Each structure stands twice: as C-alpha cells, then as structure tokens.
Computed example of a mutant assay.
Amino acid sequence: MALNQRKAAVVGCGFVGSASAFALMESGLFSEMVLIDVNREKAEGEALDISHGLPFAKPMQIYAGDYRDAEDAAVVVVTAGAGQKPGETRLDLVNKNIAIFKSIIPEIVKFNREGILLVVANPVDILTYVAAKLSGFPKNRVFGSGTVLDTARLKYLLGEHLGIDSRSVHAFIIGEHGDSEIAAWSSANVSGIPLNAFCEMRGHFDHDKAMKEIAESVKNSAYEIIEKKGATYYGIAMSVRRICEAIIRDEKSILPISSIQNGDFGIDDVALSMPAIVGRDGVEGAVPIRLSEDEKAALQASAKTLKKVLDTAF
C-alpha cells in the first residue's frame, strides 16, 4: 500500500506517547493519526481527549486502532515501553523494553514496510538498534529521538547563561542519550562566533567551570524532572514534533538523532547520536562535526558502554 505522507501512527499511549500525539496534532503536519496501545481503552480515551480540541486546530482524524491501521503511515512513532522510575538510569530499563520491542516491532512490520520508524522509548540508543535489527528496514529509515532533547536542553541553558535567544545557540550533545553523553564544546558557537569568545563578550570568563556545570545540568535534567513530577514528557513531545517536521517537510535539517554508526570516529554497529541530515527519506547523511581528542575519546567510550549493554541484552 502506498504511504500517506499526511498520516502518523503513535505506538504507546503513556505520558510520552499521548504528549507526542498532542504535539503532533498541534503541528498541523498530519491530517490523520492513529494511536495504538496494549490498553485499547487508554488509546481511545487519549484520541477522544485530543479530538475535542480540533475546533481550535487544523482538521484531522484522530482515532485508536491496531497495527493494521498503521499500514500506510509515513511515520510510526514508537514510545511504548516501561517508563524510567526515580533512581533508575535509562540503561536499567533495557531488558524490560527489549522484550516489549520484540512483540511490537514485528507487528508494525507485518503491515507497514515502507514507513519511517522513529524510536522514542528508552534507552533510546539500545532500542533503536534493536528496532533496526528486528524490522530489517534500511538503516536510514529506523532512527531514534537520540539527543535532540538533550541538545535543546543545552541550547536552553546556554541561552539562559548568556542572556540570549536559545535559537541563536549552535551546539550539540552527542553519544548516548544518557549518562555517557558528551557536550561537543569544540564545535559550539553563537551565530558563528566561537562560544568562549561570545561568553567573554557577555562577561563570563571561567569557561571550564561553566561548561562543566552546564553539561552536568543537561545530563541530570531528566533525573531532576522525574524526581519532582514522576516523568518527563513535554520536552520529548516537542522533540518528536521537530523530527517529524524535518521528515514530512523534507527539510534536510541537521538534528542529533540516534542511528546505527558506520565507522565514523572508529564507531561501528552501535546506535548513538551524531548530527545527521533528516528529510523525507529519514537519515540522509552524517554530518562530521569537529571534535577535540578528549571528545573523540569520550564518544568512543560512550559507544563501548552501549555495545557492552547490547552484547549482554540482545
């Protein structure tokens, strides 16, 4: 069946799935969206609740369905999985969520072999790799939300630190979406001005201390939010919307999504986040950013951490 470029499927209607569905409805990108959940009533309730706001938005059909209803979806957003509990790392979720993916991915693939699989469930890098292997899809059509949200957190905090619009900050978090992630300070800039030079313009001179504090804040953001309110979902929902915009509008945007690496920086056969060109065909190419020797070493260590988990769990 031909894909409907105006249709999305969201698999999993927990906090992240329902917030993502809401963000996608507000985006106006899609004219049809199916919500799929093991608890059919939950999916029906979310679809109804979001539908009731349609008089204030763009026309759209939103409904609960099953995997067959996803057969012509251009993008299948997979948020299903156990959530991260207070005190739990993303990697602690591995075995539970790999088991869930072993039941979900074959069901999606049974009906839809042409769409893009966007993995959002955690640990996103491990599950992106698992989804790619279980689906048999080409690498460009299976990728994870990766460090798109971490990067947004970094830009937000740098914007606050410097008293400027966070959209003028150009910087990436790379590697694992988790404890071994790396802030790629070497390539960070503010509208083309090297970060340290811009910091000094704004009266900040203790670069090492500020970089360390901001990187730690980014890394611990999710833990802090989970501690305070039990789950994180608005930030990731807006990240899902942003990635879907790049796909559906064929924007060729550069986003730090998680995809299986092909040898860059000596990293192969593991999914992690690096900046990539994202468009209608999914991942259209890697963007080789400048990294210091320390950053390269940290990226390779991040890959090793993920590989070790994959070797024992999958």
Rank of each mutant, 00 (worst) to 15 (best):
A188N: 12
A99L: 07
P275T: 11
I164E: 13
S18T: 09
L154Y: 03
I126W: 04
V240C: 05
G53D: 10
K133F: 00
S239R: 04
E284L: 12
R202D: 14
V119Q: 00
K228S: 12
A9Y: 03
A210T: 09
P106N: 03
P138W: 01
S258T: 04
I248F: 00
V190F: 15
L3I: 08
V169F: 02
S31G: 01
D179K: 14
I277L: 13
N39D: 15
S103W: 04
A183E: 13
E224M: 11
A276G: 06
T89M: 11
A21F: 01
K7T: 03
L306V: 15
N39T: 06
R113T: 12
Y234M: 08
L29S: 01
V278Y: 05
S239G: 13
K133Q: 10
G65R: 10
D125G: 00
K308W: 07
V130F: 01
I243K: 01
A121H: 01
Y223K: 10
E44I: 04
E71G: 01
G146M: 03
P106Y: 06
G279S: 11
A184T: 11
K308V: 08
V76I: 15
A313Q: 15
I126S: 06
G178P: 04
P256C: 00
S259Q: 05
F265I: 06
K229L: 06
S187W: 06
V109I: 02
D165F: 05
D179Q: 13
I267Q: 06
K308G: 14
C199S: 12
S258V: 02
R68I: 11
A171V: 05
G263T: 04
F22W: 13
I104M: 00
V10F: 02
I236T: 13
G14S: 10
V109H: 03
R68N: 15
A215H: 14
G45K: 12
V120S: 02
S186I: 09
E284I: 04
L54K: 11
L299C: 08
A73N: 14
V10H: 05
F172A: 06
I236L: 12
S166T: 04
G136T: 07
I36C: 00
A2K: 10
V78T: 06
S168G: 10
T147P: 02
I214S: 07
G12H: 06
V78S: 04
V270E: 02
H204K: 15
N140A: 09
L255T: 01
I182Q: 12
I36A: 00
I104N: 00
N39L: 09
I104T: 00
A99W: 01
D92F: 03
M274V: 14
A313R: 15
S259E: 03
G235W: 03
A197Q: 15
F198L: 14
N262M: 05
L91H: 08
R280F: 11
A246Q: 02
K102P: 03
V309F: 04
C244G: 02
H170I: 10
N196L: 14
